[in-house]
C-alpha cells in the first residue's frame, strides 16, 4: 500500500524539523541514490531562513552578542518555535522571553529587554496607519469635563519598562563601533510609536508609563492621572500630556457617551 500524500508530508515535515530523525523512506537522488545531503538542503533552508529573519528583526540584539552567538541562540529558538503563519514580520514576538530564559545569555542582563524594544519597534513599523491630533483638541473640552476625556492612542503605540537603560543602550548600538555605557545607569520607561513613516523611541518621564498604559486600557484622563500619581508621586501632568501629543501618540479625544448623557439629563 503506497503512502498517502498526507502520510508523505507528515513524515517529511517531522524529519525536516528534527535532525535526529532519519531521511524519510522514498526520498532519493538520481537513479534512486541516497538523499541525505539533499534532504539536508531543505533542513538548512528552514533553519537559515528563520534564523536570518530573526537577525533582520533584532539587529541590535545581534550586534550586542555578535553574529556567532546570535546564530546559535536563534537556532535554539527556531528548533523550539516555528512561525505560526507565513507572515514572518510577526516571527519572534516571543524571542525576548526565550532570551530571558536562555542560560548562556544570562550574563548580559539587559539583553532580553533590548530584544523587547526591538520586537516593539517592528510591531510599530507594521502597525495600522492613523493620523495624530494636536493638544489643541483639548481646548474644545470644558475644563470641568477634562477628567472624563478619553484619549485614543495610536495603534502603533507600544510601552516598555526596563530595570536597565534599555532605550539608551539601543540608541547607542545603532551602528558598529565602540560604545560607552549609558550614564547614569538607571531604569528606563520607553514609548515606541510610529505617528508617520518613522518609528520613534522616546524615554518617558516619571509616571509616564502608568499614565499611557491607563489611557491605552481605556481609562479616562482623570483615572490615568490617579494611576500615574500612584506610580510616581512626582508625576507632572502638563509635561506628560504635552509629551504624548508631541510624540504623535494621540489620535482622538472624546468624552464618553455615558458622561455626555449624564450632562444632558442633569443641566
Amino acid at each position: 500500500m503506497a503512502p498517502t500524500l498526507s502520510e508523505i508530508q507528515a513524515a517529511f515535515a517531522a524529519a525536516l524539523v528534527d535532525p535526529a530523525l532519519p531521511v524519510p523512506d522514498g526520498l532519493c537522488g538520481p537513479g534512486g541514490g541516497p538523499a541525505a545531503r539533499r534532504f539536508a538542503v531543505y533542513r538548512n533552508n528552514v533553519v537559515v531562513g528563520l534564523t536570518e529573519a530573526l537577525r533582520a528583526r533584532f539587529p541590535v540584539t545581534d550586534r550586542l552578542v555578535g553574529p556567532e552567538f546570535f546564530g546559535a541562540m536563534a537556532r535554539a529558538y527556531v528548533a523550539a518555535h516555528k512561525p505560526a503563519s507565513p507572515l514572518l514580520m510577526h516571527y519572534g514576538d516571543d524571542l525576548p522571553d526565550f532570551i530571558a530564559a536562555f542560560e548562556p545569555a544570562a550574563i548580559i542582563v539587559y539583553l532580553a529587554d533590548v530584544a523587547r524594544l526591538e520586537a516593539a519597534w517592528s510591531q510599530a513599523y507594521h502597525a495600522a496607519e492613523a493620523v495624530p491630533i494636536g493638544i489643541a483638541a483639548l481646548a474644545a473640552i470644558p475644563t470641568d469635563e477634562l477628567a472624563s476625556v478619553h484619549l485614543t492612542l495610536h495603534p502603533s503605540l507600544r510601552l516598555l519598562h526596563s530595570a536597565h537603560p534599555v532605550a539608551s543602550i539601543w540608541a547607542a548600538h545603532q551602528t558598529d563601533g565602540p560604545v560607552m555605557p549609558p550614564e547614569p545607569w538607571e531604569p528606563e520607561d520607553v514609548l515606541v510609536v510610529r505617528p508617520e513613516a518613522e518609528v520613534l523611541v522616546h524615554r518617558l518621564p516619571a509616571g509616564g508609563l502608568a499614565f499611557l498604559a491607563a489611557l491605552e486600557a481605556g481609562a479616562p484622563l482623570g483615572v490615568a492621572v490617579e494611576r500615574a500619581t500612584a506610580a510616581a508621586p512626582a508625576f507632572d501632568l502638563p509635561r506628560n500630556l504635552a509629551g504624548a501629543f508631541e510624540a504623535g501618540a494621540v489620535i482622538a479625544a472624546s468624552i464618553s457617551a455615558a458622561v455626555q448623557a449624564l450632562a444632558e439629563t442633569c443641566p
Binding site: 500524500l5 508523505i8 515535515a13 524539523v17 528552514v46 528563520l50 516555528k82 505560526a84 507565513p86
Partner: peptide, 15 residues
C-alpha cells in the same frame, strides 16, 4: 510550506 508544526519557511517538493 505549512504543516502541523507551523510555517516551515521553504518551498517543499511534492510527489
Amino acid at each position: 510550506s505549512t504543516h502541523d508544526t507551523g510555517f516551515l519557511n521553504d518551498l517543499l517538493p511534492v510527489p
